[in-house]
Design a protein around this nucleic acid. Structure first.
Length: 130
DNA sequence: CTCCTGACTCAGC
DNA sequence: GGCTGAGCCAGGA
């Protein structure tokens, strides 16, 4: 699925661009929210993105996670999964299986790289935090 | 400065 | 009902 036909430079000063809590980089905001995720819970990129105001671009959340392993303290990226509850980022971890391993350790059941009862462990920042 | 990619998500076919 | 297309923002080459 290659992104063909790129819409040229349409960046007409995105009207949104909501800087959550006035962080220097929206990355830090993502880290903060992820770190706030209670143990035994998980959230989705879209949820975090929506909380930050960039729900239209859940990709950025995942992108931030990419750098998460580079920041301190370590961000529990394993608690962040896609909207389906599937461990999409497990492939990006230092070692495959580490993600579900950590989740299982917290009490979350994983099956086929997918969180069982994701709705139960789902943690919405805009709902729990707000 | 320009182009691309990327751990997503929704809508359409 | 599964897959493809398209949109989003931001950082790196």
């Amino acid at each position: 699925m290659q992104r063909k036909a790129k819409p040229k430079a349409l960046k007409t000063k995105a009207p949104g661009r909501n800087r959550a809590a006035g962080k220097d980089s929206f990355f830090e905001s993502v880290y903060e929210v992820v770190r706030l995720i209670p143990k035994g819970r998980a959230t989705s990129y879209g949820a975090i993105a929506a909380y930050l105001g960039t729900k239209l671009s859940a990709r950025m959340v995942g992108w931030a996670m990419n750098a998460a392993g580079n920041v301190t303290p370590s961000v529990p990226a394993h608690r962040v999964v896609n909207r389906n509850g599937m461990l999409s980022g497990k492939h990006h971890f230092p070692e495959p299986g580490l993600m579900e391993k950590l989740l299982k350790k917290e009490g979350i059941k994983i099956k086929n790289d997918t969180i069982v009862d994701f709705e139960k462990v789902f943690w919405d920042p805009s709902r729990e935090l707000l």
